[in-house]
Amino acid sequence: DESNKPILLPNESQSFERSVQLLDQIPSYDTHKIAVLYVGEGQSNSELAILSNEHGSYRYTEFLTGLGRLIELKDCQPDKVYLGGLDVCGEDGQFTYCWHDDIMQAVFHIATLMPTKDVDKHRCDKKRHLGNDFVSIVYNDSGEDFKLGTIKGQFNFVHVIVTPLDYECNLVSLQCRKDMEGLVDTSVAKIVSDRNLPFVARQMALHANMASQVHHSRSNPTDIYPSKWIARLRHIKRLRQRICEEAAYSNPSLPLVHPPSHSKAPAQTPAEPTPGYEVGQRKRLISSVEDFTE
């Protein structure tokens, strides 16, 4: 099969070098950035008060330690540790928490760990991170309901609301924008112990962030949302095809390698009803078989 044979790379090609550099910018793992907010007593309706908090309760602090690993920003190499735009020179604080497994990295933009500057009256330095995160974990210690939209931002799609209760338990629920209701189930609340709260809140936030990324990708319907490693695979396959075309153009005697095509017509299947918005969006999480067989 010609399409699977190794090909020689061009010795000097600026377009090839640019493509390789672009490939280096696509990590081999999925990345997520999640905002974390603490809401104190009497702050449920005040964005400024929430963003001005420099610490929270003892249970909130224990919750943070379970979310991930504490890292010092100045020691991080952005090409190895995903920071979601946090500055490593102290502009966004000294520490944050991050978490990773074999296929993804997540960083938490924690408002109480970011510096509260006197010259920044409206807390814009914090909002440029927190307001651009799709998902926020809100530790609501106010005793009042927290409403979506209290923290203004164009991309605040989903809130994971943590409400501490007695007996070391917590109520965990989801809020989302109306255009996200087909992807996020907000109907079920959970009672979770303090011990298990970081794991549950983190998983709910990661799932909500993946759904938000799919939702946000609708602005470019021709580019369905893939995982990062599938995006790398697609980029490599496009690069291979372009090299083959350039080689055939410079030397017409060489065969032009095309991806294999299936001449056999697909079997006719009964027509199915058109899937609704929710089903269609969830299918976009699934990769096409052509990603692996071309």
Rank of each mutant, 00 (worst) to 15 (best):
E245A: 08
H258C: 13
K152F: 08
S250K: 08
G280N: 08
D291Y: 13
F95S: 04
H122P: 08
N132D: 12
A267R: 07
N11W: 05
A189P: 13
L165M: 09
A111D: 02
E54G: 04
R123Q: 13
T293M: 05
R18H: 12
V138K: 00
A248P: 10
S142A: 04
V135N: 00
Q43P: 01
N11E: 13
V81S: 14
A211Y: 09
G143K: 07
P10A: 14
D92L: 09
F146T: 01
G93F: 07
K228Y: 07
R18T: 12
P260Q: 13
D185L: 02
P164A: 01
Q14E: 11
H100P: 04
G56D: 01
T293W: 04
S250L: 10
K178Q: 10
D133W: 02
Q25A: 10
Y167L: 05
Y139A: 00
C124H: 15
D1H: 10
L113Q: 05
K264L: 11
L206Q: 01
N196F: 02
S263M: 11
N251I: 13
K178G: 09
K228A: 07
H235K: 06
V188W: 10
F63K: 00
H109F: 03
E54L: 03
K228V: 07
R282A: 12
S13F: 08
K5C: 15
K117M: 09
F134E: 01
A247D: 12
S13E: 11
Q268I: 11
E2A: 06
L83R: 13
Q14F: 13
K126V: 06
I34E: 01
H215I: 13
N4A: 14
G84T: 06
A248E: 09
A205S: 04
V88H: 06
H159G: 15
G42Y: 07
D1P: 15
H55Q: 09
F108A: 01
R242P: 12
D30N: 08
H122V: 10
Q43K: 02
E294Y: 05
L67Y: 00
E41H: 06
Q241V: 04
T163I: 03
L8Q: 14
R128V: 08
S52Q: 11
N53F: 00
K147G: 05
Y167F: 11
L256N: 15
V192R: 01
L64K: 01
K127D: 05
S288L: 09
H235Y: 12
Y167K: 02
K190V: 15
F63S: 00
Q43I: 01
G66I: 01
S142G: 03
D120F: 12
V107H: 14
D1A: 07
S227R: 08
D92I: 07
S28M: 06
G149N: 11
V119G: 13
N11F: 06
S3E: 14
L113V: 03
M210W: 02
K178R: 10
L171Y: 04
T65D: 10
F157H: 10
S19Q: 15
M204E: 03
R123L: 14
Y249I: 12
L8R: 07
E168I: 01
A265C: 12
K283D: 13
G42C: 03
I71G: 13
H129A: 10
H235C: 14
Q77W: 06
L113H: 04
D179V: 05
T96Q: 09
T293Y: 04
Q268Y: 09
Q203T: 08
A205G: 02
T31G: 03
C176F: 03
S52Y: 02
N11G: 11
P252C: 11
